[in-house]
Design a protein around this nucleic acid. Structure first.
Length: 799
DNA sequence: TTAGGGTTAG
């Protein structure tokens, strides 16, 4: 359609010059509000008297009828066939038709063509053209049109001014709207409504409400649009009291059954956190429509009542014959994400396709989010790839889906692709990608992304600030985390405290975590469930057994917090650490919550540490039955089998993995040296200084062999070969550490990062290296940081 | 023939 219209615009660019007086026609209707029928009659009457070409009149009428009935193609065909187009009326009808259809570019093109053909725009032309400029989001066009109306003296016309108020608000220039509004000599109801709604769309609910009240104080008569904007202002600012006042006003003024107002009321109460009030409005509506249902579902979702949102739709389909539309699906999908209802999410996707709702930018973005939340990153990616249009939010959703599912490296690649797109990353992009940096990056890279954020002016938001604290801690730069925490005191919240407590925890500095907790209480910050996850992790990693139990028991007693699955996870880690495997298994069986893959993962780690293959097999089986991504647990079990020389079982696991399409992650270790980041894989030969690295490794190998527990001689010859192939002697972590040793000054500490957990043999070896070289060696894996010093590790040999 | 309008993604 758009192409056809554009073609029409340009093919007939040079048409005939004006012969009909525009002023005459303008005079006909200038002050009248007439309906279609009257207009046609009047046109016929007047034109029969004044126009020399009655044929042109009938075309004008037909053209108008076409636009009125929505047949724009027909109107355009008629328009192009007109020999004389000097009457602004026909241009106005066409421009209006295009604007109403959302074809803003074409509408503006016709306006320029009108000028080209020497037809002057009138007070009817400009409101349409200004609306089209607002729709195009082009300040340049809008500004030119504004200059034009000022030049020809139409800047005093109420309709023109009202259109300008709306246009500037849409362009994000609310100050310009304000200026026009203030300078208007005569303001009508639409002027007030446009200004109030402009403030709401600019996110300034306070000014919107002030103007709403001012309008009432001036004795202006308000209408449904004033009310809708007023309620929008209350929703935006969480002004429940004002919302309730407007609700009373609605009832007093007899607007209580207006369907649009009822929708806004449901929405306002939902956004003010009063879903009960939303329900009360909703269930009193007679003749509910799909928009009411959508607003109610939105209110449920916003207030975390996901099951209620699903049953609401079910009831409405059954009792009110409501047919879900695109927005119903968009509102419902977050419930699938939060409840992990992948099956329902897929059904919604299928329904959207069947009903022809796709392609739809928002719907598809919500589907990416749903698939990402339900750990279906492949489906999310497929959705993303197939999208016809993408915006920054869809890119962010895809980056977030990768990060959430542990695909940090792909997320990095996508983030870099995004930098080549015409989008500027926003706070959400940064909070989405920062965990990927946290997962893999080193301090210098962490600082680089922080610098980039500062350049974009994106580090003042509390979400971003907390992500930064986490990222620094996870990059191994605890000082950076602490510095961000101290500097951002104005954006600091409970999440900042929890994050820093967790930051020290993952570095095995549990005692500092505990001191921070005390300071947090002194500052009057009340702990929440996540605080205890951080604290219990701190105790567990640092081996503070007694403290762990004290905190766990105080949660309910002292703070009224019911232990969640994460808290049980920390206690199971702790029981694993002290070797109480039976107790850990017993706790899993007896706890009041359904065990998750993470819980079984804790038991698996404990089983690995205490060489309990039977329990490890059970844990892996449970993880598989939860349909959780299973690569890590299979690899761990496979390694246990290998350590025990059970190669048939290793083969079986490999077969299982292959059957399920799972691939072992290629292990690597990264290190920063003299401004550069180097990455090593096992048995790596690619580094420029690899010969010196292997020489250095040779020198310390003799010492390392003393602590290695891999006794090749106890295997059969065939197994011995395989054992040698899997020997950790040249594992990436050792190569990276040796590179660190030869490229840094004696005494300096060495920091490396791994993408998978350290094997036991390397852990023993690095302890020994720290002793013989008298260096502090810090190794960060996906879970914690190991600080090796003088033959000991901060993890207490449990990770 | 003109202006303002309900529910929509992280």
């Amino acid at each position: 359609m758009a192409t056809t219209l554009s073609t029409c615009c340009y093919i007939h660019y040079n048409s005939h010059k004006t012969t009909i007086s525009a002023q005459k026609l303008k005079a006909i209707n200038q002050n009248d509000k007439i309906n279609n029928k009257n207009c046609i009659k009047r046109l016929q009457k007047r034109k029969l008297r004044t126009l020399a070409k009655p044929n042109n009149l009938s075309v004008s009428i037909s053209l108008f009828r076409c636009v009125e009935s929505g047949n724009l193609e027909c109107a355009l065909t008629l328009f192009e066939k007109m020999i004389i187009r000097t009457d602004p009326f026909v241009w106005n009808v066409i421009i209006r038709g295009l604007t109403d259809e959302g074809l803003f570019r074409e509408a503006v093109d016709y306006y320029y063509r009108m000028q080209f053909e020497g037809v002057r725009g009138d007070s009817f032309t400009f409101p349409f053209v200004i609306k089209a400029c607002g729709g195009l989001s082009l300040l340049m066009e809008g500004g030119k049109v504004h200059a034009k109306v000022t030049k020809i003296g139409l800047d005093v016309d109420v309709y023109v001014c009202n259109a300008l108020i709306v246009m500037y608000a849409k362009l994000g220039l609310i100050e310009c709207s304000e200026k026009i509004f203030e300078e208007m000599n005569v303001k009508d109801l639409v002027s007030w409504n446009s200004m109030i709604s402009g403030y709401v769309s600019a996110g300034d609910g306070f000014s919107a409400l002030t103007h709403f009240r001012k309008m009432l104080a001036l004795g202006m008569k308000y209408d449904r649009f004033s009310i809708i904007s007023g309620l929008g202002a209350c929703s935006f600012e969480n002004f429940l009291r004002s919302g309730k006042e407007i609700h009373c006003q609605i009832i007093r003024s007899g607007l209580g059954s207006d369907p649009m107002i009822l929708t806004s009321l449901i929405d306002m109460y939902g956004k003010c956190g009063q879903v009960d009030y939303s329900e009360s409005v909703f269930y009193r509506i007679s003749g509910r429509n799909v928009i009411h249902v959508n607003a109610m579902i939105g209110a449920y979702v916003l207030n975390s009542k996901y099951n209620e949102s699903l049953s609401c739709l079910e009831k409405m389909i059954r009792n009110d014959n409501i047919v879900p539309d695109t927005i119903t699906l968009i509102n419902l999908l977050p419930s699938c994400s939060k409840l992990g209802e992948l099956k329902l999410g897929k059904s919604i996707h299928a329904l959207a396709i069947r009903r022809g709702y796709c392609p739809h930018l928002v719907l598809e973005t919500t589907l990416i989010d749903m698939y990402g939340s339900c750990q279906r990153v492949k489906e999310a990616n497929l959705m993303f790839i197939r999208m016809k249009d993408r915006n920054l939010i869809s890119w962010n959703a895809m980056i977030s889906a990768y990060v959430q599912n542990g695909h940090g490296r792909v997320a990095f690649e996508l983030f870099h692709d995004l930098l080549n797109e015409p989008f500027v990353p926003d706070e959400m992009t940064i909070t989405s990608i920062l965990p990927a940096y946290a997962e893999f990056a080193l301090p210098k890279e962490g600082k680089q992304i922080h610098g980039y954020m500062t350049k974009l002016g994106l580090n003042s938001n509390s979400f971003v600030c907390n992500s930064l604290i986490y990222m620094y801690a996870k990059c191994g730069d605890l000082q950076g985390a602490k510095r961000t925490f101290d500097l951002k005191s104005s954006q600091r919240d409970i999440v900042s405290w929890n994050t820093l407590i967790m930051g020290y925890a993952i570095h095995g500095l549990g005692s500092i975590s505990l001191r921070l907790f005390s300071r947090m209480l002194e500052e009057g910050v009340i702990p929440n469930g996540s605080t205890f996850v951080s604290l219990l992790s701190a105790c567990s990693i640092a081996g503070l057994v007694e403290e762990s139990w004290t905190f766990f028991n105080s949660m309910k007693k002292k703070y009224g917090i019911d232990p969640g699955i994460e808290h049980y996870g920390c206690i199971i880690d702790l029981l694993g650490r002290v070797g109480s495997l039976d107790q850990a298994k017993h706790l899993i069986d007896e706890m009041p919550l359904e065990p998750t893959a993470r819980i079984w993962g804790s038991l698996l780690a404990a089983s690995r540490h205490h060489r309990n293959i039977e329990l490890a097999e059970l844990a892996v089986h449970k993880i598989s039955s939860l349909q959780h991504e299973n690569t890590g647990s299979y690899v761990l079990l496979s390694n246990m089998y290998a350590e025990a020389g059970r190669w048939e079982d290793v083969e079986r696991i490999n077969y299982l993995m292959k059957k399920q399409g799972l691939e072992r992650n290629v292990g690597w270790t990264r290190i920063e040296s003299k401004g550069e980041t180097c990455q090593f894989t096992n048995y790596d030969q690619s580094h420029a200084k690899i010969a010196i690295i292997y020489d250095a490794l040779d020198i310390i190998l003799t010492k390392i062999r003393e602590v290695s527990n891999v006794d090749v001689s106890r295997f059969k010859p065939k197994d011995r070969r395989r054992q040698r192939e899997n020997h950790p002697m040249f594992h990436s972590v050792r190569l990276a550490i040796c590179f660190g040793l030869i490229s840094s000054s004696v005494g300096n500490s060495i920091l490396v990062r791994k993408n998978i957990r350290m094997c036991e043999d390397c852990h023993k070896a690095v302890k020994k290296i720290s002793e013989i070289t008298n260096r502090e060696i810090v190794v960060g894996d996906t879970k914690i940081y190991h600080h090796f010093h003088n033959g000991h590790c901060s993890c207490g040999d449990y990770w």
